[in-house]
Nucleic acid binder design. Structure first.
Lengths: 165, 165
DNA sequence: GTGGGTGCAAAGCTTTTGCATGATG
DNA sequence: CATCATGCAAAAGCTTTGCACCCAC
């Protein structure tokens, strides 16, 4: 298994590919195009790591001019997920969190319950087992949630203090 | 890997053991005993499968007499989890769902997105890999969320599409 | 012009919290 | 009687929805 990094943001060419992919879905569904939607997509894809709807809405507000309202963001995000630009992650916790999925490899999460640190990893052996399990019960696997929770080295006794957060 | 069944409810002896375990935690924490709390524990342990807080509260109301209020159920459930009687599960979805953990073996879930069917399975190989992954990053694993989502055989038309992750 | 998209406000749900009252040790 | 537990109501998130208006096709 190996660690996976969030990597840098998308360059303009990649951003264009992402928007094209979104446009394709929009067209396929017979929807209209929209500057606001594209703006939300840009903001979302510019984010590093995991973000909440509220954080994204704040970013959009900071971009000045056109500020997409929270309700609109809520309406648009599922579309971005369907378009493969984003994915929903880190299910534990109250509010939904997203992260970029476009031109990123699949990965799961290891979260420290002490400091909140998140390690992203990819383990093909686990993926294979998941497919095997699903097949064994006659399921066609479409998706999965896999989050490991534990205490990282820094947050364990032996290291120093443990600061709340 | 193998399937795990919810099994029948607890018999009276097991119920007594569960309540004793809860009492032990209560004592350890210097809390008071309480009939309401025991009643909530009984109702929760009598449930089959997965249940929401609201469903449990309804059960309690149906038991007549003493009806524990929803707020109380919310307050008590975490204690039952800490006592090892229940565990939080099926994280996808809006509201929290619990299931009995007392005298049951660990398992994860395979959920059909078509009909909602849930298969509970136990895969030691996956557990081992999870420990290995955590160790590799210096984490002490305390918990995990692992939910596979797919479409079961009954919900798939004879012609089968393809959609792997 | 028709139908989708968005801003805004209000509603909806689930969960948490404050306070007064009642139970426990 | 000093705490803890509970009922009740109200608040507090997070997310969805209704409606009027705007924009794309």
């Amino acid at each position: 298994m190996r660690q996976v990094t969030s990597g840098a943001g998308l360059d303009e060419a990649a951003m264009a590919r992402a928007l094209a992919q979104l446009a394709a879905l929009v067209k396929a569904r017979g929807l209209n195009s929209s500057a606001t939607r594209a703006e939300i997509a840009r903001a979302a894809l510019s984010r590093r790591g995991h973000f909440s709807v509220e954080e994204l809405a704040t970013d959009l507000r900071a971009r000045g001019a056109k500020d997409a309202h929270t309700a609109t963001v809520y309406r648009v995000l599922p579309l971005l997920v369907d378009a493969g630009l984003l994915q929903l992650t880190l299910v534990s916790g109250k509010s939904a969190r997203y992260e970029r999925a476009f031109e990123r490899e699949h990965h799961d999460h290891l979260v420290c319950t002490g400091c909140g640190k998140i390690v992203e990893f990819e383990a093909e052996a686990v993926e294979a087992l998941q497919r095997e399990i699903a097949a064994r019960f006659g399921f066609l696997l479409t998706d999965h949630v896999h989050e490991l929770r534990g205490v990282c080295a820094d947050c364990r006794p032996g290291a120093r203090r443990r600061r709340a957060r």
